[in-house]
């Protein structure tokens, strides 16, 4: 039997654009560079004019390079980056490892939901930083109290997104497995979990950024290490290049965390990639 009709298939052919001055100027990567360089230039001129009490980008970068070798409170720059990152990783890991399963359970089982939801809703709107005093009261001023804030901060978005991820699943997807005779366990493993995966990653992303807010708040309050502490240090010594450097490093490290999460998401949710990226 010949399959000629069935073998017909849509081909995706990407059209090549000729290289012109407009295609270069309109290229998004080119525009990224334009945007970034303009930002540095504006910053430079404001700082060089002595406005707003800023340090120039050069001074800031130099200061950060200096800190790579010179120790501040017993740690060089990488030591401080690690101090903050470690708190985040531990706190986030605990928050996600409890929050994601709890959210999934709440969405999949109405008894769990009925028991947990009222209490959760009560605590949900409370900013995690409101826990700082209690946390210090319970855990002292050491590492555990900082990690605790981060656990609280990353727990909430994980619960919310895991819950929503299950609840927004198109009911027709369950019909597909039901008519095939799938049982409840198969429904959960073949449909609920994979369908909710992108939402879990959305929760993880939000948790990460909340975790950064929390770690900075904790370090500003009481700490001898970490990027938040570098900023406080710069403030106390009136060294704007230290403050700005601390901020820039936070931005970079937080971006790396977020990019790493996106990378893992792309690996685990390949269907979310467009044709372009395949």
């Amino acid at each position: 039997m010949s399959n000629t009709i069935a073998d017909e298939i849509v081909h995706h052919v990407k059209e090549r654009q000729p290289l012109t001055i407009w295609s270069v100027l309109g290229n998004e990567y080119f525009l990224y560079c334009v945007s970034f360089i303009s930002f540095l230039l504006i910053w430079h001129f404001i700082a060089a004019a002595g406005l707003l009490g800023l340090a120039t980008p050069e001074a800031t970068i130099k200061e950060m390079i200096r800190l790579m070798s010179v120790k501040l409170a017993g740690k060089n720059l990488f030591g401080h980056i690690w101090a903050s990152s470690r708190r985040i990783l531990i706190g986030f890991a605990i928050g996600a490892a409890t929050g994601l399963p709890l959210g999934l359970f709440m969405a999949l089982n109405r008894y769990v939901n009925a028991i947990v939801k009222p209490v959760f809703d009560l605590f949900k709107p409370m900013p995690p930083i409101a826990w700082i005093s209690i946390s210090i009261l319970w855990f002292g001023i050491g590492e555990p109290s900082k990690v605790f804030i981060i656990v609280i901060g990353s727990f909430v978005p994980c619960v919310l997104n895991a819950y929503a991820g299950i609840r927004i699943i198109d009911p027709e997807l369950y019909d597909v497995i039901r008519v095939l005779g799938g049982n409840r366990r198969q429904e959960i493993f073949y449909v609920s979990f994979p369908a909710a995966l992108p939402a879990l990653f959305a929760g993880i992303q939000i948790s990460m950024s909340v975790a950064w807010t929390c770690v900075l708040a904790a370090e500003l309050v009481s700490s001898r290490s970490g990027l938040g502490w570098i900023i406080i240090r710069g403030m106390k010594l009136t060294k704007p290049e230290l403050v700005l450097g601390g901020m820039a490093v936070i931005a970079i490290v937080a971006w790396i965390f977020s990019a790493a999460t996106s990378g893992i998401e792309k690996l685990l949710c390949p269907w979310k990639r467009g044709i372009k990226e395949l």
């Binding site: 027709e172 597909v176 994979p194 369908a195 995966l197 269907w271």
Partner: peptide, 8 residues
């Protein structure tokens, strides 16, 4: 309605 599992 055509129903495919988008993650497969």
């Amino acid at each position: 309605e055509p129903t495919c599992l988008p993650w497969r």
